[in-house]
Simulated assay, not measured.
Amino acid sequence: MIKRLKYLIFTGLILASCSQKARIVLLPDTQTYAEKYPEVLDAQLTWIAKNAKKIDFVLQQGDLTQNNNVKEWGIVKNAFAKIDNKVPYVLAAGNHDMGSGPGLFADVRNTSLFNTYFGEQNLKKYYGGSFEVGKLENAYFLFQTGKVKWLVITLEFGPRNEVLEWAGKIASKYADRLGIVNTHAYMYSDNTRIGVGDNWRPQAYGIGKDQGEKAVNDGEQIWDKLISKNQNIRWVFSGHILNSGVGTLISTNEKSLPVYQMLANYQEGVKGSIKGGNGFLRIVDLDFKEKSAQIRTFSPFLNEYKLDTANNFTLREIKFNTNIK
């Protein structure tokens, strides 16, 4: 009886300790793997599947494909099938995942293949709703890790004014939840948000001609219109940008609370990239008791870490609460 009691107490302590931590895996632009190196993408998803019990959810930052064609979408779908019903995952639609046809990137907002291959049925347990019925490029999801409740909003490439207005209403509705915005284009490689004069700005694509409520927004505009105004949105993850492919920025919102914003992208075209990124992904380990976040960049394909400070760092004194009082 005494041994049994000790076991229960010990087990309870373990569970209590675990509930004070969370692990999020970030899976940046997979486009080159879909086009040329499917074995690298398979290695990433196989690793996630094997470590499913240690991962709370996965966020993918868009450009799942390079050419937005059936062949590449099939490769991506088969890879993600490895974690179906094992680890919840949220995807973003990048400029390479939308367009009027294969190889036409964001000339129009056609995401038919994205939504055909990844419908809301994949996340019914966590799915909250979408801006447009039957479309997941603008949607929100509700997770819980221990006592921490999460709101994850995923946004299209160059989100429209009307989409940002919708997202703001969702953030307000779930103001008691810690918010993450997951989107394709937001941060630039100089540790600032994408803005006027930057390469690969959403306004430079075909959809950039739209006006009014359909007008696109870059990172700085997303910050001004959505992120800075909602006290519970504390994290923003994005990809898309080349150069070094990485960037980190901590900004203060209108309620004087810190917002942690990160760019991670290792695709073909990024400086030093091999095999479209060699399978590097990001592991974000949150410790609610210690008020810290450890960010590591790891490749299951190579079984190695990036050890430079842009890819391997710890954030401290993080405010995880959503109450500003």
Rank of each mutant, 00 (worst) to 15 (best):
K3F: 11
K3W: 07
R4D: 12
L8K: 15
T11S: 13
G12D: 10
L13N: 11
L13K: 09
L13V: 11
A16M: 13
S19H: 01
V25I: 14
D29Y: 02
T30C: 04
Q31S: 07
P38C: 07
L45S: 01
L45H: 01
K53A: 15
N67L: 15
K71F: 12
V76W: 00
A79K: 05
A79Y: 04
F80Q: 04
F80V: 05
L91P: 00
G94L: 08
N95E: 12
H96P: 04
H96A: 11
M98A: 10
G99T: 12
S100W: 04
P102C: 15
G103T: 15
G103F: 12
F118E: 00
F118V: 03
E120H: 11
E120V: 08
N122M: 05
Y126Q: 09
L136G: 00
E137S: 01
L142F: 12
K147N: 12
W150P: 02
L151W: 07
L155I: 10
F157H: 03
R160M: 13
E162N: 14
E162C: 07
L164E: 00
A167I: 06
A167E: 02
A175S: 15
R177A: 13
V181G: 05
T183L: 13
A185T: 15
M187C: 07
R193D: 02
G197K: 08
Q203P: 03
Q221W: 09
I222G: 02
L226F: 08
F237V: 12
S238G: 11
H240T: 09
N243H: 15
T248H: 09
K255F: 10
S256H: 13
S256R: 11
P258A: 08
N265S: 12
E268W: 09
K275P: 02
L281F: 14
V284G: 00
F288M: 05
R296D: 13
P300F: 04
D308A: 07
A310V: 02
N311G: 01
N311H: 14
L315I: 08
L315M: 07
R316V: 06
R316S: 13
E317Q: 12
K319E: 07
N321R: 04
N323L: 08
N323F: 05
K325L: 12
